[in-house]
């Protein structure tokens, strides 16, 4: 469950080839980190899977079903964007209620993060008054709200204080252990090391390498993921 297959995916913004005939398989029930330098195509890839970006060519399937015009597959997806942008005049409660409404008011929602991330007090303030951190927390609440089978977390802890950050990470781990598919992008390698099962490294719209975290650290002989990856990249360049 929750296997995402990407075949020959290409997309360009103007002259910039963001994704270049990308082939990728994301295993279900694991946490996959998508890494790469700025502009490598991480966010575009995630947006393609979500349907926010219409790729120029290629095919994406989730559990064998092709991602197309029918938006129903998104019912299974939770998304926490990199920059949390919301209608400025609405409150978080209204947004939550609205999305709940759009999904047909399911009963078994999970609102525990509201309390765990301590955003109870912020729910009735218009978004324009919320700080970046609080927006981020609301994003997290929304991503987990409907107990999705697949979670996309785009830089989830950027801008969060250490306490909330670890609350969130615990939650991700919990979801991972519960067998959900998690796709993570992050610049914080310790976070990736802590959460991810495997790493996909993008460069210029292609996969530079793809390996499990354990393997990466093991074969490189480095003490942590960050150094392991650095070594791996330079090794390639040298070779």
């Amino acid at each position: 469950m929750g296997m995402i297959r990407i075949h020959d995916l290409s997309h360009r913004y103007g002259r910039l080839q963001v994704l270049d005939a990308l082939e990728l398989e994301i295993q279900g029930g694991r946490c996959t980190a998508i890494l790469g330098p700025n502009g490598a195509g991480k966010t575009t890839l995630v947006k393609c899977i979500l349907g926010l970006v219409r790729p120029d060519s290629g095919r994406i399937t989730i559990d064998g079903e092709r991602v197309g015009d029918d938006p129903e597959y998104r019912r299974r997806i939770g998304y926490m964007p990199q920059i949390a942008r919301y209608p400025e005049n609405l409150t978080a409660r209204e947004i939550i209620q609205m999305i709940r409404d759009l999904r047909g008011n399911p009963d078994d929602t999970d609102e525990s993060l509201v309390h765990d991330l301590r955003v109870d007090g912020e729910l009735d303030k218009p978004f324009r008054t919320l700080s970046g951190g609080n927006r981020q927390k609301v994003s997290a609440v929304l991503a987990f709200l409907f107990r999705p089978g697949i979670l996309f977390l785009d830089e989830p802890t950027a801008g969060l204080d250490p306490v909330t950050s670890s609350v969130l990470k615990d939650r991700v781990k919990q979801e991972r252990d519960a067998g959900r598919t998690i796709v993570l992008t992050s610049h914080v390698m310790s976070e990736v090391e802590e959460l991810a099962d495997s790493v996909v490294y993008l460069l210029d719209g292609r996969i530079h390498f793809e390996e499990s975290v354990a393997e990466l650290i093991g074969t490189s002989g480095e003490m942590n993921l960050e150094r392991a990856i650095a070594r791996r990249i330079t090794a390639r360049v040298v070779a």
């Binding site: 979500l50 349907g51 926010l52 015009d69 938006p71 129903e72 597959y73 998104r74 019912r75 997806i77 998304y79 964007p81 942008r85 919301y86 209608p87 400025e88 947004i95 999305i99 759009l102 999904r103």
Partner: peptide, 17 residues
């Protein structure tokens, strides 16, 4: 332009364009 955020938010939900 002002509804950009709203649009992006809803497009991640099971909503037709």
């Amino acid at each position: 332009y002002g509804s950009r955020e709203f649009t992006e938010l809803l497009l991640t939900q099971p909503v037709r364009r």
